[in-house]
């Protein structure tokens, strides 16, 4: 099983990503990380993979709207969203086919159960063997729970990603956490997508999936196309 990010130039440089890989995506606020992680999920859906998106920042419906706004014809039977927001806003929304509700970002047990349920559904009932788990974002979870707690949660679920030969991508906000937190969490990942501010916008590179980091590229997001320059 092999995956790609759906970002042409970077995919060419890093080659196929083997199943069971966990990647941290770290970058400053407003640098387009949410778009990027949704694009990674979308590229998987377009390749007939399944996608599970854990949303701690936006209600699940907003995540689906992201795809709708871009007129993307995604296969609804292959996308699952774990919504950690709606119930904390006081809405008694029941689970749907595509959106399962966690009580809050504190409820790591519930988040874990919902992720497992989607994985079981895609694997057992739909016989899909390639699934992408996109968590947006770990920073919110870290705001509610301490590092040790989040580390335990990730320890379990990065392990599940390996067992299922899936691809895991986890967003972290740069500047929100101390260096020790980032170093601690890094142990759990096989690679990183790093984003930084450039002279004219933002730059991106991949670290850890190839012997040397890729070069930094300026990038621009047009719909679901990530255009790299340089």
């Amino acid at each position: 099983m092999a995956y790609n990010l759906g970002i042409p130039k970077l995919d060419d440089l890093i080659g196929e990503i083997r199943g069971g890989t966990n990647i941290m995506m770290i970058g400053p606020p407003m640098s387009g990380k949410e778009d990027l992680i949704n694009i990674i999920a979308y590229r998987g859906l377009a390749d007939r993979d399944a996608a599970v998106i854990v949303s701690t920042r936006e209600p699940g419906n907003n995540v689906l709207e992201w795809f709708e706004r871009r007129n993307l014809n995604i296969a609804m039977d292959r996308i699952g969203i774990v919504d950690c927001v709606t119930r904390t806003l006081g809405f008694a929304a029941p689970d749907t086919e595509n959106i399962k509700m966690a009580s809050s970002p504190v409820d790591l047990t519930g988040i874990g159960v919902k992720i497992s349920q989607f994985f079981e559904h895609f694997w057992m009932e739909m016989q899909l063997r390639e699934t992408r788990l996109c968590i947006n974002s770990l920073s919110t979870i870290l705001m509610y729970s301490n590092l040790q707690t989040v580390f335990r949660f990730l320890h379990v679920f990065t392990g599940r990603i390996k067992a299922a030969n899936a691809l895991g991508v986890y967003v972290i906000e740069e500047g929100m956490h101390d260096a020790q937190t980032i170093v601690t969490l890094k142990q759990l990942f096989d690679g990183m997508i790093e984003i930084r501010g450039g002279e004219d916008g933002y730059q991106i590179r991949v670290v850890g999936l190839t012997p040397k980091p890729t070069p930094w590229f300026d990038y621009e997001i047009n719909g679901v196309d990530v255009v790299l320059r340089g």
């Binding site: 119930r87 904390t88 006081g90 008694a92 689970d95 009580s103 504190v106 409820d107 519930g110």
Partner: peptide, 15 residues
Amino acid sequence: ASSTDPQMIRDQFSE
């Protein structure tokens, strides 16, 4: 209740 809003808990039970 340690990880869920009490009203949401009642809703969860209703489900």
